[in-house]
């Protein structure tokens, strides 16, 4: 009892509010469309979809905590999954070649992220500009390699990664939970995790406290790049192909999730739990729309409205507090 009280005290209000919204959607949909919404098929479908952008959102969150932004994640995801797929196909499509492909994708993601981090940390070009260019650059690289169309012919067993289940739990969900725990651990319990928070709060004071800002910046975007690669691996497995422009709507979506999850765009503040909760809420809304047969474009509209509404509310609350 004591513990749960403390838990609620420590969890921030934002995360709790999201949790409430998620419950509300469950309840409403459970009443109006219990068969289709709470059915195993829908639940499993949801669990396959959200890890893809949920993992990207974690990368975005890290960048934002460090005081930057990463708009190139989708580009990195696609480019690394393309390279990974090529390796998989070229090495014959066996079990080891799948591992090789995944390894290659992670390395490519890390390299792209390092490149971003170098331009941002060393040349001091604004993160927004670097990653906006990066999106173009990595998408362009993907296009250059594939010549445009989707890369197919991936090993059959590879698609199990996103579409398969382990004791009834989708593997994609397990991967998401694993990545989620790792990022949460990094932020909470490692020196890097604390340093990135310091740097995001005040990068001058962090320099004067002996924190190596360049190293932290590069590490942040490197981790972001690897998270992008993980998401790319899941996307390629989901569609059983790799393409330079998969998931192009994810950039906005991840930004929305991160802001919704209580991360401050000016840096220094962000919670993994909030982001995870925001991912779940968005997936629930999205599923509810599908079941209610709402035009899928309405989603884009609603995401935009939500993003603006959340930002406005936070700003208004903030200025009220200051008064």
């Amino acid at each position: 009892m004591e513990k749960s009280k403390k838990f609620f005290k420590e969890a921030d209000k934002n995360t709790l509010a999201l949790f409430g919204i998620a419950l509300l959607i469950f309840a409403l949909m459970g009443i109006f469309a219990p068969g289709s919404f709470l059915g195993i098929a829908n639940l499993q479908g949801m669990c396959i979809q959200f890890p893809e952008y949920g993992i990207l959102a974690l990368g975005m969150m890290l960048a934002m905590i460090s005081g930057g932004i990463d708009l190139s994640l989708v580009g990195i995801a696609n480019f690394s999954s393309i390279i990974g797929s090529i390796v998989m196909i070229k090495t014959g499509g066996s079990g080891t070649s799948i591992l090789l492909g995944i390894g290659a994708a992670l390395i490519v993601g890390a390299l792209c992220g390092t490149f971003n981090g170098f331009l941002i940390g060393y040349l001091r070009i604004p993160a927004m500009l670097v990653t906006l260019c990066g999106l173009q650059l990595y998408t362009g690289l993907g296009l250059a390699v594939t010549k445009g169309p989707a890369l197919t012919g991936l090993p059959e067993s590879y698609s199990l990664l996103a579409n398969g289940a382990f004791f009834g739990i989708p593997i994609a969900l397990l991967i998401f939970i694993m990545v989620f725990l790792i990022v949460a651990y990094i932020l909470r319990a490692t020196v890097y995790g604390q340093h990135v928070l310091y740097m995001g709060t005040n990068d001058i004071a962090s320099k004067y406290s002996g924190i190596h800002n360049l190293k932290i910046t590069i590490t942040t975007y490197l981790i972001g790049g690897m998270l992008g690669a993980v998401s790319g691996i899941l996307m390629a497995s989901h569609y059983n192909s790799a393409k330079a422009d998969y998931g192009s709507s994810y950039t906005l979506l991840t930004l929305l999730i991160v802001v919704l999850g209580g991360t401050a765009p000016e840096g220094g503040k962000g919670k993994v739990a909030g982001v995870a909760m925001a991912v779940i809420v968005l997936q629930l809304v999205s599923s509810a729309f599908n079941i209610l047969r709402v035009n899928s474009f309405v989603k884009t509209f609603v995401w935009g409205l939500l993003l603006l509404a959340i930002m406005i509310i936070t700003k208004v609350v903030e200025s009220k507090k200051k008064e």
């Binding site: 490692t190 020196v191 604390q194 310091y198 709060t201 004071a205 406290s209 002996g210 924190i211 220094g268």
Partner: peptide, 24 residues
């Protein structure tokens, strides 16, 4: 770091010392 706690300010330059086997 004005927007961080006194604790976080105090350990900012020495956070490595609190690294245990399972984390900070």
């Amino acid at each position: 770091f004005m927007d961080r706690s006194i604790c976080q300010n105090t350990v900012a330059a020495s956070i490595g010392r609190y690294m245990e086997k399972t984390g900070l």
